[in-house]
């Protein structure tokens, strides 16, 4: 009885916090942000490949140039965003201990980051698909490292 009362008092005793956790938004990592950006890269790449001027007149050429520039700008931006999101997972979430379970972790991230660059430099659907594939592999590594098996769902 006394022990239970004491335990209850100890559990409710006001106390300052001491942190035994990660910094910032602790544990809030999700490869979904990289996936959305990589999907956008693939989508813009496909749109760029399919894009053609409506005619040979000046207005059509101007419209084409304008749309082409916008698509390229978005593809660049989303490629960079994919790289940023992947680097956050690589350098902040994954720890040296994960290498025992995922020995190809560094290689996977390095190749994925290289694919982001390739997607910026080129209009290459194969590279964009490879990038999405690499993000899917990272998605699987990430969730299995948390003991979960979240399915891979794309927006498009």
């Amino acid at each position: 009885m006394l022990r239970e009362t004491l335990r209850s008092i100890f559990n409710k005793l006001p106390a300052k916090s001491v942190h035994a956790h990660c910094d910032g938004p602790c544990g809030v990592y999700d490869p979904a942000s990289a996936r959305v950006a990589a999907e956008a890269v693939l989508s813009m790449t496909k749109k760029l490949i399919a894009l053609a001027p409506a005619g040979n007149d000046q207005a059509s050429i101007s419209a084409y140039n304008n749309t082409f520039s916008r698509f390229v700008a978005i593809k660049e931006e989303e490629s960079q965003k994919t790289k940023k999101e992947l680097l956050i997972l690589w350098t902040d979430y994954f720890k040296p201990e994960h290498l025992a379970t995922y020995p190809d972790l560094h290689d996977t991230f390095w190749k994925a980051a290289k694919l982001c660059s390739a997607c910026k430099v080129n209009i290459d659907q194969t590279k964009a698909e490879e990038l999405l594939g690499a993000v899917q592999k990272i998605h699987s590594m990430f969730w299995s490292s948390k003991g979960r098996n979240d399915s891979w769902v794309t927006a498009s």
């Binding site: 005793l13 106390a15 300052k16 916090s17 001491v18 942190h19 035994a20 956790h21 990660c22 602790c26």
Partner: peptide
């Protein structure tokens, strides 16, 4: 005295 917050010492200390 202090109250533990977080899981980085799990195995020894719990939240």
């Amino acid at each position: 005295h202090l109250r533990v917050v977080g899981t980085s010492m799990e195995g020894t200390l719990k939240e």
